[in-house]
């Protein structure tokens, strides 16, 4: 049984994301300020499969590539804030997905796979942190990310940009 640095409950204390967009299940390794490894298990009950026709083919059950990216971004977000968590999306300091480049999808992910994201902090500035990432199922690499940029901005910036309806949605 590998060490668990953060299970589901701890993840919810550290990330604002909830079902169906809390896309990590467990942190199995962390070296604050340097690197982190987190896992996401993919099952037949992912909500996105709900809209598939009953006779959908195996290939139609490929886990959405952009959600692999989101899952890896959440791992980077955890590493960026390990010692100073940002659990509320509307706090005084919010974490934003600034940008990403050099992403390669090199393998498919299907129900039954457990994806392991390895993220490494490559450079940090005052309000911006830059990572690289590699995601694998077993020892097969399924995604590589050359550069992922996460920015921290004052909370007011995001909330005020929201039209009034956002809160009542």
């Amino acid at each position: 049984m590998t060490a668990i640095f953060a299970g589901a409950a701890e993840l919810k204390r550290r990330l604002p994301h909830r079902h169906p967009m809390l896309l990590l299940d467990r942190v199995v390794e962390v070296e604050p300020g340097a690197r982190l490894i987190a896992r996401k298990a993919v099952t037949c009950n992912e909500p996105w499969y709900d809209r598939l026709a009953d006779d959908a083919a195996e290939r139609d059950h490929d886990y959405p590539a952009v959600l692999l990216v989101e899952s890896c971004c959440q791992a980077a977000g955890l590493l960026a804030t390990w010692d100073d968590p940002v659990p509320d999306a509307r706090g005084d300091r919010v974490m934003l997905f600034g940008g990403i480049s050099g992403v390669r999808f090199t393998g498919r992910v299907r129900p039954g796979d457990v994806v392991e994201h390895q993220v490494r902090l490559t450079r940090s500035f005052a309000d911006t942190v830059i990572f690289e990432g590699r995601s694998a199922v077993g020892d097969e690499t399924v995604m590589e990310i050359e550069q992922l940029v996460i920015a921290f901005r004052p909370g007011s910036g995001l909330a005020t940009a929201a039209p009034a309806t956002a809160d009542r949605a």
Partner: peptide, 13 residues
């Protein structure tokens, strides 16, 4: 913007 400027720095480094 400020993010791109930092990406220039990282690329040059």
């Amino acid at each position: 913007d400020s993010l791109l400027a930092l990406e220039v720095i990282v690329a040059l480094e």
